[in-house]
Simulated assay, not measured.
Amino acid sequence: MLTRRGVLAAAAGTLLLGACGRDGKPEAAAVRAGGGPELVIGATLELSGPGAALGVAQERALAISAEAVNAKGVMVGNIRRTVRLEVLDNRSDPRLAARQATELGRRDDVHALLGGTLAETSMSVIGVAQELRLPFVSLAFGDAITVPLAQRAFIYKVTPEAGDVARRLAQVIDTEGLRRVVLLAEEGLHGDSGARAMTGALRTAGVALAGTVRLPRSKDGVARAAEEAVAARTDGVVVWATAPNSGAAARALRSAGFTGRLFFDAGAVAEETLESHNAPAVEGAYAIHPASLGGSTLANSSATGRAYRELVSQYVRRHGAYNGFAPYASDALLIITTAAKLAASVDRGRLRAYLQNQITDGMAGLYSFTPIRHSGMERHSLGVYRVDGGAWNRLS
């Protein structure tokens, strides 16, 4: 029998293969090929500042995948184009990200934009992308990035929906027999999405929410937030925060005397999450994350599996250990190049039309975009993981 994933994957776009990353300065970089027609994609990423725990890893994966695409080029109509990336460091500053998007968007030779691993930097780009009618694929977590649709016609997102992650987390908590938990959600748009989603998901699962504590951005407030969460006297804490805030929260909770179970949303997972300063605190923690984390994609013999194996191989060779972060940037590049192939054009309007009518099997998961759904990751792409022996182990 055909599974839903099998049917969708049968209609999937062409997969990216891997090559290698960049070791240069973080302020700005470009991946260029030889002369000839180009597909130019701008990228504003957090290569420094608080968002670097996510941004640097995504930039490395993006460079690997771009070099692979350029080994053959992208057939756009009857023209084979090379991809040129223009990568800028937004320093985790939303205002700088908006300026970069404006500069890139006003150029006639830039066809699409990706980036923003933080919700705030992505949100600052949205208005610019809409005004300049520039397709933008966000790498950030936060449901407000793609809604309301009337104001997000050119905006797309490759990260999972908060509701899908929350439902899986609530199911795990219920299965583990916990009846009362507290939510520690970071301040900002990502935490707002988590607070809304977890409240409903826990209610549906019959698990009591003892309270919601907001995790501040400043290091000074993390300890106080952790102490407040521990004071709720529950057996479980859901940490809804992006790295490195997620690891800092785990350390603070353990320092405050919490010995119960920790549960992370997908944004918590980065290379930094399992580094030595976090390892004791996160051991035994659960996380909901796309299937690329647990190595199931590596074992897949499909084109996706082969591409992902090559990505991991090149990443390890160029940058050292690879801990299974989701290559959202690679998938964003795949989605844009697939749209260009389908549209037989690099015109921004045509790219947008084919972005919102696309089913693509990516490295992080399966994507299904429609005119009324610009957050494309399928919920079936998510898995349940636990940290065992300092590594992510897939449970289901």
Rank of each mutant, 00 (worst) to 15 (best):
residue 141 F to N: 09
residue 96 L to V: 14
residue 108 D to N: 14
residue 111 H to C: 06
residue 104 L to G: 03
residue 165 V to C: 02
residue 103 E to H: 09
residue 161 E to Q: 12
residue 79 I to N: 05
residue 143 D to W: 02
residue 152 R to C: 01
residue 55 G to H: 01
residue 63 A to L: 12
residue 67 E to K: 12
residue 106 R to G: 15
residue 65 S to F: 07
residue 113 L to N: 03
residue 54 L to Q: 14
residue 91 R to W: 06
residue 134 L to T: 08
residue 101 A to H: 05
residue 107 R to M: 11
residue 114 L to S: 05
residue 142 G to Q: 03
residue 76 V to R: 00
residue 58 Q to H: 08
residue 98 A to P: 01
residue 52 A to M: 13
residue 153 A to C: 03
residue 77 G to K: 11
residue 146 T to M: 02
residue 134 L to W: 05
residue 126 I to L: 05
residue 164 D to Y: 00
residue 120 E to T: 15
residue 140 A to V: 04
residue 68 A to L: 08
residue 102 T to V: 04
residue 138 S to A: 15
residue 117 T to E: 09
residue 57 A to H: 06
residue 94 P to D: 10
residue 150 A to F: 09
residue 114 L to Y: 07
residue 155 I to C: 09
residue 76 V to D: 00
residue 135 P to G: 09
residue 111 H to R: 08
residue 121 T to F: 07
residue 148 P to N: 09
residue 124 S to C: 04
residue 114 L to I: 15
residue 140 A to Y: 01
residue 116 G to D: 06
residue 130 Q to H: 00
residue 65 S to A: 14
residue 89 D to R: 01
residue 54 L to V: 09
residue 143 D to R: 01
residue 91 R to S: 10
residue 90 N to G: 12
residue 79 I to Q: 14
residue 58 Q to V: 10
residue 87 V to D: 08
residue 58 Q to Y: 08
residue 135 P to D: 11
residue 131 E to L: 12
residue 104 L to A: 07
residue 65 S to I: 13
residue 164 D to C: 00
residue 131 E to F: 09
residue 66 A to G: 03
residue 96 L to H: 08
residue 66 A to E: 09
residue 57 A to D: 10
residue 155 I to G: 05
residue 95 R to D: 15
residue 104 L to K: 06
residue 116 G to V: 08
residue 143 D to C: 02
residue 120 E to S: 15
residue 107 R to V: 03
residue 163 G to S: 12
residue 79 I to R: 13
residue 57 A to S: 14
residue 82 T to L: 15
residue 92 S to M: 06
residue 52 A to Q: 14
residue 152 R to T: 04
residue 56 V to F: 09
residue 114 L to Q: 12
residue 77 G to C: 10
residue 161 E to W: 03
residue 85 L to I: 07
residue 59 E to M: 14
residue 166 A to C: 03
residue 87 V to R: 10
residue 127 G to R: 03
residue 107 R to N: 07
residue 90 N to E: 13
residue 158 V to W: 03
residue 157 K to Y: 00
residue 148 P to D: 08
residue 91 R to F: 09
residue 101 A to L: 10
residue 143 D to M: 04
residue 142 G to A: 03
residue 136 F to A: 04
residue 104 L to P: 01
residue 56 V to M: 13
residue 156 Y to W: 11
